[in-house]
Design a protein around this nucleic acid. Structure first.
Lengths: 337, 337
DNA sequence: TTGTATGCGTTATCAG
DNA sequence: CTGATAACGCATACAA
């Protein structure tokens, strides 16, 4: 059953023309007589011909596919980013492929390089763990590359990011105003730029008000499981926190779980805040206080930037920071003690 | 700054050898002296050389990348499937690219064809809307293709699916046993095989017990918004349903929303069941009664099948149906009236 | 141990 | 309006 593959030549033979003619017809190039067009199209149809993307791209033709590389496939935050990007790309006649290359830096470099080597016309890198060297290499690449939520050392690549520091500060002041003194933080994934920003803001705010305590910070890896483990530890402390700032909503979910496990009522006995405003946040009980980012707008700009790059525009030195927005819901209240 | 691209030849020139030698070194083929290897690797490093994937694939080399095509990027169900597949693939030395091609059938056919034309070594199609013709074409393709949750006419492609019909029946009998007589259904996406299975089971059960009513079925498109709209209509009925079977958890979320909007308590005034057991289901209030599928196992098998296909094994006539599992939580109870 | 020649499938150029 | 030719970058058989 396995017919190896149908090439231009097979179609040409069946239609009784040359490969060049077939190529032209299928690409609507040059002037070909209606009669020939008819024959060629029928032959192609009958053989189930599909152009070989590799050969095409080798020849320099754009693939009309954009790539997006994310640290994690299943995270609702990245899923939303991907969906939004896929939407705008689709409207503009492009497809979007989603990749995750968090395995090894070597693999990442190689995979990204090969993606850029003709498979995709442009690439969006989300939360790049990016060694300097890697990013410098990317700057050299002929295809457009856009960084989303990159917080590392300066780069010439265009950067789109959401504001994290100020918003985290506001979030914490909300907790402080409520009267909380022992506010814990469940920090994010080790190499996440956003996680680092949030942690930095947390440390500086807490130090500024003289409430900084080393042991109130626990790593949660941005996962529900991590959030739960961290919360268990925090609640077992002699001086347990009255509020927890989870690095993202997923880990906040873990906080909810651990709190329930311990019979603690939110927000009466424990206040919780998250980050990202994933779809579920509003449906938790109680609904979670968190921070929303204009994910749609970010994704849209990223795609637009890519397309502009494709048209030859130089994108370097572009940085756009989007404001984030506090979403106050019912998971925070004054401390009970 | 934009150095067009670095080819094997550039590296060869810098290292003072031929392209063949470079190729061999970089692929660990043949016997090359340590000294030469050193020089070549340094040159490649310095130039930031990355092999052009298009050329490589054109030459017949596997890309070590698997593809997965889903109807929707942001759906938690598909996200979970993709994550699981990416995990096993990763463990086996492959990367996974995620694509969505729900736009036009033409585009889909073309995109899938070109993916198979060297970009990916194998493809997992999830919930293919698949015209017969399209699937027949896929059977001809030289690369392995696996279908997940395909419920259409017979195909020679290997199929992995979750049991839907029996489980839906059980779900409905749970509702019936509780005493519900007016059970509505919010049906799924128009071309979804799973949606069709669930609808079919619903119709046959309801007809069997003499409770079938045309106007208790509303389309929800498997989305939250659709679920909400459908519920609004259902609740406005003179004889409103006492229980709603949402086609999936996402639309069940919409049911929750509409119920809250109307001041209806779940499950006291309205019972709700969903399907899929997405992560959020257990965190709703009340926790949602739903159906869980062994998504991990399905994804794992799909990847394994692909790899076996890659080793030359004939995969046709393979069908594996995984059992689904009722997850009874607190969103169902006896009708109040 | 290293290099020469060749072809993968497609399309741009140019000639007929 | 149509076709012959070359080239894209790489990896393989074969030769040196």
């Amino acid at each position: 059953m396995i017919r190896p593959k149908v090439t231009l030549e097979d179609v040409a033979r069946l239609a009784g023309v040359s490969t060049v003619t077939v190529s032209k017809v299928l690409n609507n190039q040059g002037r070909i007589s209606q009669a020939t067009q008819q024959r060629v199209r029928q032959a192609a149809e009958r053989l189930g011909y599909v152009a070989n993307a590799a050969a095409r791209s080798l020849r320099g033709k754009p693939s009309r596919m954009l790539g997006m590389v994310v640290p994690e496939m299943a995270s609702p935050y990245f899923a939303e980013l991907a969906r939004a990007a896929a939407d705008v790309a689709g409207r503009l006649g492009y497809d979007l492929g989603l990749f995750t290359t968090s395995r090894s830096p070597d693999r990442e470099r190689e995979r990204v390089g090969s993606l850029l080597g003709g498979l995709v016309d442009g690439l969006i890198l989300v939360g790049p763990s990016g060694s300097r060297q890697f990013l410098r290499a990317l700057e050299q690449v002929p295809a457009p590359v856009v960084l989303i939520n990159y917080f590392g050392p300066p780069t010439h690549l265009p950067v789109i990011r959401a504001e994290n520091y100020q918003t985290t500060t506001a979030l914490l002041h909300h907790l402080l105003a409520l009267g909380h003194r022992r506010i814990a933080h469940i920090s994010g994934a080790p190499h996440s730029g956003q996680g680092a920003e949030r942690l930095r803001a947390y440390r500086e705010v807490m130090q500024a008000v003289g409430l900084w305590q080393e042991d109130l910070v626990r790593p949660g890896g941005f996962t529900q499981e991590g959030g739960m483990q961290a919360t268990r530890q925090l609640l077992a402390l002699a001086q347990a926190p009255t509020a927890i700032f989870a690095g993202n909503d997923l880990s906040a979910l873990g906080v909810y779980e651990a709190a329930r496990e311990r019979g603690l009522k939110i927000p009466h006995q424990l206040s919780v805040v998250g980050f990202d405003d994933i779809p579920i946040a509003d449906h938790l009980s109680p609904p979670l206080t968190t921070v929303a980012q204009p994910v749609q707008a970010m994704a849209q700009l990223a795609v637009e930037l890519l397309l502009r790059g494709l048209e030859g525009e130089r994108l370097s030195e572009f940085v756009q920071e989007f404001p984030s927005r506090l979403v106050l819901r019912s998971s925070t209240g004054p401390p009970s003690g």
